[in-house]
Write a protein that binds this DNA or RNA. Structure first.
Lengths: 149, 149
DNA sequence: ATGAGTGCAAAGTATTTGCACGTAC
DNA sequence: GTACGTGCAAATACTTTGCACTCAT
């Protein structure tokens, strides 16, 4: 599956925190652990419950919000879409950049990778003198299953 | 600029409403008018104020929310991004599909069109048996001006 | 020891909704 | 005249924040 050394990632995160003069706390490391083991798209509420369910050290909703934001900055997590009012995130450390097909009927999310699209994007940015830091491509429609029914 | 006959668009919208057995009201037509003349990215709050500022018939925030949703369904408006908690829309009737470069520093939005990317997207959808209805590509980064400063 | 981190409850904010009244048909 | 549309205020629902306490350094 994911070719990622979780221990190494945690060490990097600790360094990231130290560099920002922030503290390496149990809640922060625990959350990175739990998000990595959840290993798919998640929303804050799910994460709060997931943590509560598999550990005897729950983390408060506020801290989850604060830490997810931090992990986003660190680069281990990214925002996928805002669906209704909720934000859906994904754990991305160790996996290549990818985009999404989102089924409007069943909500399924299919990931795909396209180097050609990535490279066209770079051409476009060059043309505008724009420095890309991040991007997001989502295609909304109907997945195979939902088309038949 | 925009090659669009506003009167024709309004007629189409009226037909759209009748087909849905909805009423053709002053608020609905007025809003289409105002959005067309605003002619750039907008948020609900801006639209409410814009309408209030240039007409003696303001439209309530609730009706704006309801009507924008309707115009989205009709196809004259589309959601661009959710920024913070707000949703940013754009008027799209009469203009070709395009995507966005969003400057993270100043908030500027640059539009671009790429047929190559569109066609690669179709290839990907075919591969997954996915029927695309709609898509959204945003590249976040720094615009030319914000890189220098 | 000290200040940053955490949990809680309260506040905030974009959006939605119930209801009484107005208006298109 | 009837039912749908509108405006208002209240309700929602996700997210943020102030504050007192706890913990990493």
């Amino acid at each position: 599956m994911r070719k990622l050394n979780l221990e190494a990632l945690k060490k990097e995160f600790e360094q990231f925190l130290r560099k920002k003069k922030m503290k390496v706390t149990r809640a922060r490391l625990d959350l990175l652990d739990h998000i990595a083991s959840y290993d798919r798209h998640f929303e804050i509420e799910e994460l709060v419950n997931w943590v509560a369910s598999r550990s005897d050290r729950p983390v408060s909703r506020s801290t989850v919000y604060r830490t997810v934001k931090l992990l986003e900055e660190f680069g281990a997590v990214r925002e996928v879409i805002k669906k209704d009012k909720k934000t859906i995130y994904e754990f991305v450390a160790g996996s290549p950049h990818h985009d999404h097909l989102v089924c409007l009927n069943c909500g399924k999310i299919i990931e795909f990778v396209s180097d050609e699209i990535e490279s066209l994007q770079h051409q476009i940015c060059n043309h505008y003198g724009f420095k890309p830091l991040n991007h997001r491509l989502e295609i909304y429609g109907l997945c195979r299953d939902c088309q038949s029914s």
